[in-house]
Design a protein around this nucleic acid. Structure first.
Lengths: 212, 212, 212, 212
DNA sequence: TATGAATGAGGTTTCATTCAT
DNA sequence: TATGAATGAAACCTCATTCAT
């Protein structure tokens, strides 16, 4: 994590709030805005420089090259993903996993249905098909998230008797639904969100409660 | 359709196999390969020229600019989408829509789970967030496909009593699942396809048969 | 003259109305239109092909290269110049050179003040600074025209006593005035033509009549 | 003025000798040489790069595009024109406008009769027929110069009684003569300058002194 | 740490010209 | 005589990256 800084020796992987880190965030934030609007390839370092208020030359002080900035953005995104997963885990302790998940359907949809969010996610996936590094980051983060959730699902009495494969497949399908929303948002912008939420909740509930 | 050729007057909109058309296909095929491997922006005309065996200059005889080639690829893709929709419609006449759809789950998954297919689809969606033209193409084709299928669904006795909004939302969710597979394939390449197919079939069946 | 055709052996320099000649004119006419609107360098053979209705390949049957087309246009222009000179000569036989020339002031101004005419003339001169061939054509035609007119002027009783150099200089200045109009038209499009004509007539008359 | 630099905020419109300005001049000087020899369209950025000793990429740091370089050259030229006009104005205060102008005939002719000067002026005019921007620059500068001189002429006792239109027309014709010299130089390189100067002086004197 | 001038490779696109038919 | 598909060089321009300060 945060390996993208050049003076790596000054950032001992744990400290996250040194001066360099702040400046890094400044760049990443600007880059995020640009990538969102124009995609990775159509975003020039010059533009990132202007938006971030940091000179092009100095950006290279923090990031080896443009790819490293992309990696930084991807990492940010995946960190958020894992944070949401962790949130789900914590909430399921208090209200139970089914209700915790049901409660997350709505914000989850809102998140993917935000066109900007969806765009950047798609952009990252497109990059993953080209950059081995990005692909690995994405797949590893996804695996971690899945493993965490699977752990939770295994504790559900209703699903306890299901074979592990079936459980994993159900999780995969649940994730598929949320993933699909990012695409649907772009293909069908006029989608009726309220009705869609109801249907998705029904699907999720079935997948979480059907014991056979 | 197929308006992307410059000498548009030579392609009478119906015949698709004239000489110009063949050369166009030659370019589109090569472009498809390149776009798949490197994405739209990282694919140079030079490379398309080499792969297609057509000089860079001559490519511009058939396509006004690079964007037109992208549009050609997108159109190809969307045409296939509509063909698959039409196929579903025809099959549902003989075996009923539920069974027709269930029969399409497996090939549908196989299609999206093909990494190459998924990659190009994601690439197209990424482009749609930047190019108004591509976005329009994608959304219009999607709307047509949705309208066609909705027509079918309305004939289902089990769903006839459902409000139109609910029906549309169910369709949206079904499509979401298939869309999501393109992403899941990239995030979770080790996915157990057989189990996933079973779960998806169950979801689809519920959405097609539950009357309330 | 008309040396620009490739099958030069078919056009024995005198015959001007063979089939090839007609086709040549077809190209030159189209080229003239294009050069006028966009200049020599911004006019592509492709465009000339479209405007003339002759295929690009076939244009090269009549003209060795683009430069030859330019030369053809220039020659056309210079031929017109010499024709106007000849006209002046003929008219001066009947009405006298002073009146003949005075009568030509108005149409002469109208000619140069036509923005299109002026544009192409300027274009030709610009080309003359780059192409030795064009420069030679322009200078030679100009010399012929000057010599012809000088012959006339020498017959004027009022000017007969002037040294030859003075006479030539007066002619040069008269030509300068008309040349300048092509530029003035472009720099000062709102110029009052009627008043300008009066002033120019006065200048010309002075140059033609002042005996000292 | 001098707005052609991209970092326009660094050139406070009055100071003309900052570092950026020097580099700009370096490019403009090289471009001027090239334009003179080969014209605008036949001069590549690459060549300007070589002549100016600045990399092609960096040229675009100072000029948005090639047209902006052309505009820079044109502006330089027009600035010189206005400077010469101003000079005339100042000299006419001391020696009177007629003598001031007569004194300028000789250097004025020498200027236009310099083949290089004439060539670039013609080139600019040719460009003006194609580029609205250049046409506007040329016409506006010409209008300013004319207005300035007209102001002077109105103070001449001999001309005071002339109608304004007549006065303007005389000015137009005087300018026409000088303009024409640029063309004459190209068409008639062997022109006898001394004799021509005498004749032109006589014309100018008549236009400045004849009261009717 | 910070700047931004500078580079040069490489991108898209156009165009004069050729050649098989 | 006539076509127009085809080529490939070269044009303009952008951009990631480096380096002197």
């Amino acid at each position: 994590m945060r390996k993208q800084t050049r003076p790596a020796e000054k950032e001992p992987d744990s400290a996250g709030n040194d001066a360099g880190g702040e400046r890094c965030q400044q760049v990443l934030k600007a880059a995020g805005k640009c990538f969102l609007k124009h995609g990775f390839h159509a975003t020039s370092i010059q533009r990132i420089s202007e938006v971030s208020g940091m000179s092009p030359g100095h950006i290279y002080h923090y990031f080896r090259n443009k790819e490293a900035i992309v990696a930084g953005i991807v990492e940010q995104r995946l960190t958020e993903l894992l944070e949401r997963t962790e949130l789900l885990r914590q909430e399921s302790v208090t209200v139970g996993i089914v209700e915790a998940w049901m409660a997350r359907v709505e914000p989850g949809i809102a998140l993917r249905a935000a066109k900007e969010r969806a765009s950047l996610d798609i952009e990252i996936l497109a990059e993953a098909t080209r950059s081995e590094a990005v692909a690995t980051m994405v797949q590893e983060a996804d695996a971690v998230a899945r493993a965490n959730i699977l752990e939770l699902l295994k504790q559900l009495p209703a699903l306890r008797k299901l074979p592990s494969k079936e459980l994993a497949a159900r999780l995969t399908v649940m994730r598929t639904v949320f993933d699909g929303l990012a695409i649907r948002t772009l293909c069908e912008p006029s989608m009726n969100q309220a009705a869609t939420i109801r249907v998705i909740k029904r699907v999720i509930r079935m997948l979480l409660e059907d014991a056979d």
